[in-house]
Amino acid sequence: MTTLSVHLVVALAVLAGIAVLAAALSRLGTARSNAVAVGRAVAQLALVSLVLTAVLGRVEWSLAFAVVMLGVAVGTSARRIGVGRAWPWVLVCVASGAVPVLVVIFASGSVPWNGAAIVPMAGIVIGGCMTASSLNGRRCFIALREERDTYEGALALGLAGPVAIRLVIGRHRAEALVPGLDQTRTVGLVTLPGAFVGVLLGGGSPAQAGAAQILVLVGLLAAQTLVVVVQSLLIERGRLVPEDLRQSTLRRTTRAQVGLSEGVGD
Rank of each mutant, 00 (worst) to 15 (best):
V94N: 12
Q231Y: 07
A37L: 09
T253D: 02
F106C: 05
L245S: 07
V103E: 03
G204I: 12
I18G: 04
T184L: 15
D149E: 14
G188H: 11
P100N: 05
G238P: 03
R40L: 11
G259Y: 01
G127K: 00
T53W: 07
Q183D: 06
A95W: 00
V68K: 07
V103C: 08
R85M: 02
L12Y: 01
I126T: 11
W113D: 13
G202I: 07
A11N: 02
I169C: 03
G161P: 01
I142V: 13
V218W: 01
V92H: 00
R139H: 04
V190I: 15
V218K: 02
A154M: 13
S134A: 15
Q44Y: 09
D266I: 06
E146A: 14
R138P: 01
G238Q: 02
G210Y: 04
W61C: 02
R173N: 04
V125R: 06
G153M: 06
E236H: 00
E60A: 13
I214A: 14
I169E: 09
S49Y: 05
L144K: 07
I142Y: 01
A66D: 06
G204D: 10
L250T: 08
F65N: 04
G180E: 04
A116E: 13
V68I: 15
P162C: 04
A176P: 09
G170Y: 02
T253S: 06
Q208I: 05
A211Q: 11
V51W: 03
A164I: 09
L181W: 11
A43H: 08
G17I: 10
V90N: 07
T30L: 14
R79H: 14
L15P: 03
E147K: 07
R251Y: 04
A117Q: 14
S5R: 09
V51L: 15
L45N: 10
D266Y: 11
V230T: 14
A222G: 15
V218M: 12
S108Q: 05
V20I: 15
A117I: 01
E147D: 10
G71S: 12
V227W: 02
T2D: 01
V59A: 14
V14I: 15
V51S: 11
A95M: 12
S108L: 12
G194W: 05
A256W: 01
L52P: 11
V178D: 05
A35R: 08
T225L: 06
R246I: 01
V6W: 11
G210E: 08
G161L: 02
T253M: 07
T225E: 02
G109E: 01
G238E: 03
A73L: 06
A73P: 10
G210H: 06
R85Y: 01
V55E: 10
T30G: 01
G75I: 01
L200N: 09
L15F: 09
F106Y: 03
V48C: 08
V264C: 00
A43P: 08
L91N: 03
L217G: 01
L4D: 03
Q231I: 09
S26Y: 07
V187G: 11
N34C: 14
V119G: 13
R166V: 00
S108Y: 03
G188K: 13
L226N: 14
S77N: 10
M130I: 06
E262F: 07
V20Q: 09
I81C: 04
F65S: 05
E175C: 00
R58V: 14
S205V: 08
L159P: 06
S232H: 06
V241A: 03
G29I: 13
L45G: 13
A43L: 15
G17C: 10
G161I: 02
V72M: 13
A35Y: 04
